[in-house]
């Protein structure tokens, strides 16, 4: 790779807690760096020594096979020692507070802490109590920055740009940290964002985020470049937010008929795991316009980029080493 010839990209911050506060330059820098890791990940020899000697702890208070394994692989490919904390089996859930947990982990001198928690703001709270770099792997309904970055990388590789595209984010916006991070990132890079959902799944004052609000899928998808579907949690399907799975799929599930309202070359994304037949039809999920598998691949590359960029500013590392 050519990166040895120029100064490595760094983030001028210790933690990545959200897309909020990232500049367009920082986002683009991360995406450019991730491109290099996409190449690396497709080679037989996938390992780097960037994080050799570093300890990465994956602390997932909320189970997530996909994101956790993506971070694990990213750390290992960069040479870090990676430990997964199985929160469910430990004292962490038995009355120990988040701050106690932070103090305990901090005493183990990790360099990178990857945290997922069901409460908005919990990762920021934990980050204030530790000395290492913290990456938010999803906090409540607040942010999921690496998901937004991997979505952006996927879009950019397929469309060549983000600027000027129209992206429709569809489904349970209210409870979605993916939606929030994506809205922030897509706006930062100059895309138009629409949200499409039944009114019960739209957060209050969502229009003040600068998005176009639609309740009707057909109108919402009209002439869009990207359709981003969101997962609908099972407990919200039966009368509390929408009447039934059947009705939800009928009006808001993405099938081929609805997808035809988008641009002919529109692409379909989903952060996973999918509920086939609830928010997305299998024919679309597995169809020619789907980028869903590529998103998973980009996930590893983007997380390597984030780990790499943050590690450059860790103590003991010279920024240009």
């Amino acid at each position: 790779m050519t990166s040895n010839l120029k100064a490595p990209f760094t983030l001028s911050r210790r933690d990545l807690l959200g897309i909020e506060g990232l500049s367009a330059g920082e986002i683009t820098g991360l995406l450019d760096l991730a491109e290099e890791f996409v190449v690396l990940n497709r080679q037989v020899e996938k390992k780097r020594a960037t994080l050799r000697g570093r300890t990465q702890i994956n602390l997932f208070f909320e189970a997530s096979t996909r994101t956790q394994s993506s971070f694990e692989l990213a750390g290992k490919r960069l040479g870090a020692d990676v430990m997964n904390m199985a929160v469910g089996n430990s004292s962490l859930k038995k009355g120990e507070t988040l701050i106690d947990t932070a103090a305990t982990l901090n005493a183990m001198h990790p360099d990178l802490l990857i945290v997922r928690h069901s409460a908005s703001g919990a990762v920021e709270l934990l980050a204030r109590k530790v000395d290492c770099a913290v990456i938010n792997a999803g906090d409540g309904a607040h942010e999921h920055p690496t998901q937004a970055l991997l979505d952006a990388l996927t879009i950019r590789r397929n469309k060549g740009r983000i600027q000027g595209l129209t992206v429709a984010i569809c489904g349970d916006i209210t409870h979605s940290r993916v939606a929030r991070s994506n809205i922030l990132l897509l706006h930062a890079l100059g895309a138009q964002v629409r949200v499409v959902a039944p009114p019960t799944l739209l957060p209050r004052d969502i229009e003040r985020f600068g998005v176009e609000v639609h309740h009707d899928m057909r109108r919402g998808l009209e002439d869009v470049d990207i359709v981003m579907m969101l997962r609908l949690q099972r407990e919200r399907m039966n009368g509390s937010f929408v009447p039934s799975v059947k009705e939800y799929f009928h009006f808001w599930g993405l099938d081929e008929a609805k997808l035809r309202y988008a641009k002919p070359d529109a692409l379909v994304m989903h952060p996973g795991p999918m509920n086939r037949g609830v928010e997305i039809d299998s024919a679309v999920a597995d169809g020619a316009q789907s980028l869903i598998r590529e998103q998973v691949e980009m996930g590893v590359a983007v997380r390597m980029a984030v780990l790499d960029a943050l590690s450059r500013t860790l103590p003991g590392n010279l920024p240009n080493a």
Partner: peptide
């Protein structure tokens, strides 16, 4: 409830 709560995910 409002824009701020929506942004904070609360």
């Amino acid at each position: 409830e409002g824009e701020l709560a929506s942004r904070l995910g609360l």
